[in-house]
Design a protein around this nucleic acid. Structure first.
Length: 223
DNA sequence: AAATGTCACAACCGCGACAGT
DNA sequence: CACTGTCGCGGTTGTGACATT
């Protein structure tokens, strides 16, 4: 709400695509001051961007450990499974995909997995090339590509809710089982898992108000 | 070769939740 | 307890590249 309402509206808040110089400024700012305090980024870094925009840019592109590029089959499977269980809780889903961001997961879902919906776009039935063979746009991989270290998406100081959900998984012994979800990504699926990877397709969407319930369920599921 | 259509991705917007005072 | 500011999420739109005609 900072740009839109709360604070004194900056007369000239820059919008649109980020330039490398801006990335650099933001990166330096975060390195110097740490994450957070997005509302003051523009003053202190010299960037003419709103805090929200800075936060998004950092979170989605500049942050270390961001993994960009093709989403693997395992990751895709996981996204689908998680979406079955969680619905459009992209941040939660992304939290289970080390290095992936909610925005990326969301975009991936909308463009690759949720065909037929978004913006009335549908693909010709023959173009099932989506997953792998989709036409190449020569991704502007000028974006910082991270090492992809499976560090737990480095959410460090981020989000209360997110933190909650991550910690549930990472710190709570009750959630031990669900860590196997990450295992899916970090290492190739064991054949037995791979064989059953699509069992969930038949399952109806279930909404879980309580993350504990959800992840206990995940833990009990046959992957 | 140009025009048009389609698609993927980046970024913005609005809203709700939470924390601090 | 109420108010205010900040943060984060999810939905949506804009932009640019590639494909097709």
């Amino acid at each position: 709400m900072e740009e839109t309402g709360g604070l004194v509206p900056k007369p000239s808040v820059k919008k649109g695509l980020w330039k490398p110089e801006e990335d650099l400024l933001l990166k330096k700012y975060v390195e110097a001051h740490g994450e957070g305090k997005w509302a003051t980024v523009s003053e202190r870094s010299g960037l003419k961007r709103g805090g929200k925009s800075c936060r998004l840019r950092w979170k989605n592109y500049l942050r270390p450990n961001i993994k960009r590029g093709e989403i693997s089959k395992e990751e895709e499977d996981l996204i689908i499974r998680m979406h079955k269980l969680l619905g459009n809780r992209w941040s939660l889903i992304a939290g289970r995909l080390p290095g992936r961001t909610d925005n990326e997961v969301k975009n991936y879902w909308n463009t690759h997995l949720n065909k037929g919906r978004s913006r009335g776009k549908r693909k010709s039935p023959s173009s099932d090339d989506d997953a792998g063979n989709k036409r190449h746009r020569g991704l502007p991989n000028s974006q910082p590509v991270c090492d992809g270290s499976p560090e737990k998406s480095s959410e460090g100081s981020e989000g209360r809710k997110e933190e909650e959900s991550h910690n549930i998984l990472d710190n709570n012994p009750r959630m031990e089982d669900t860590k196997s979800l990450n295992h899916d990504i970090k290492s190739p699926l064991p054949p037995s898992v791979e064989d059953t990877a699509f069992l969930f397709y038949a399952e109806p969407f279930i909404s879980f108000p309580d993350p504990f319930v959800l992840f206990e369920t995940l833990g009990e599921m046959e992957w």
